[in-house]
Design a protein around this nucleic acid. Sequence first.
DNA 1: CTTGAATTGTTATCTTATAACATGAATTAT
DNA 2: ATAATTCATGTTATAAGATAACAATTCAAG
Lengths: 138, 138
Amino acid sequence: MIKTQKHAALELTEKQNLVMETLAKSKRPLGAYSILDALRDDGFKAPLQVYRTLDQLITLGMVHRLESLNAYTVCQLDSCASRNSQSASFVICEMCGLVEELAHSNVEGIVSRLLTNFDFRPTKTAIEIRGVCASCQS
Amino acid sequence: MIKTQKHAALELTEKQNLVMETLAKSKRPLGAYSILDALRDDGFKAPLQVYRTLDQLITLGMVHRLESLNAYTVCQLDSCASRNSQSASFVICEMCGLVEELAHSNVEGIVSRLLTNFDFRPTKTAIEIRGVCASCQS
DNA sequence: CTTGAATTGTTATCTTATAACATGAATTAT
DNA sequence: ATAATTCATGTTATAAGATAACAATTCAAG
C-alpha cells in the first residue's frame, strides 16, 4: 500500500459525493425525497439508497439530521467531520427557514452541565432552537 | 358565570384526558398511531383526532414531542404546564429506551449562552441528549 | 330561531422511513 | 483458482408519521 495519505474527502464514494453536492447547493436543509428527486438522473432510484448514503455521511460527521424538520444539511463546521461528531446544534428561523449551525465548542460543556447529577453517558446530542432570526425580526 | 376557579387539569376535554392517561400509563414515549390504537374503543377513529389532541396538549405544555423519536410523552415537570412551555430537554437511553426530562431552570440560561453573538429570538427549544443511562452502563 | 365562526369528524393522500429479500462484490479458506 | 462466507448495494413492498380538504356538528351572537 504505497498510496499517499488519504483525506476523508477523497474517500467519498460517487453516491456520497452526489448527496454532498446536492445538500451543499441548497441553501436550506433537504428531505430525503427531495435529494432523491434531485439525483434521479444520477443512479438514485429508491429512497433507501438516499437513506443509506445519508447514514454514512452522518456517521462521518459531514451531514447532520435536523430532527425537528426531518431534513438533512451539510455540516457547516470543519470540527464535526474532523472528529466524526454526530452532535450538532442549530438555530432555525420559523419565518424564513434559515438554519444555522452553532459551533459546539460551547455545546459539550453545556451538555455536561445539564447532566450534572445525572449518571448518563451522552453519545449524540441534538439541540434545535426555533425562533425568529435577525432579518425576520425587522 | 359563578363557577369556581378552574384548574388547568379540570379544563381538559374527554379526549385530552384520554390521551393524557394513555401517555401517563406508558413508561415510554408513544407514537401517535400507538395512542390511536390504544384509544380505538374510546371514540378515536382517525389519526387526525390524535394529532389535534396532542397539539392542544402540547400548547398547554402538558405533553412534549420528542423530535428525534417522532413520539410524545407527558411532561414530567410541573413547571411546563404552569408556564405553557413548549421547550423541553430530554436524555434518551439508546439501550433501554428510558426517557427523562431535564428541569429547564438550567436550560433557558444555556440557550441564551449558546445564542451569544447571535441575534436570534428563541421561542421553542428542543434538546435531546442520546446515550447510555446509569442502569445500562453496568 | 338563524347566521356565522369555530371546532370536530372523516376520507383520502402525502411524506418519511424501514423491512425483507435479491443481487453482486470482496474476502478468505480449501 | 474456486467454493464458501461475508458484507455492501439494489429493489420491491409496506409501515409509520402527518396533513389537506371538505363535511358535519357545535356554539355563541344577533
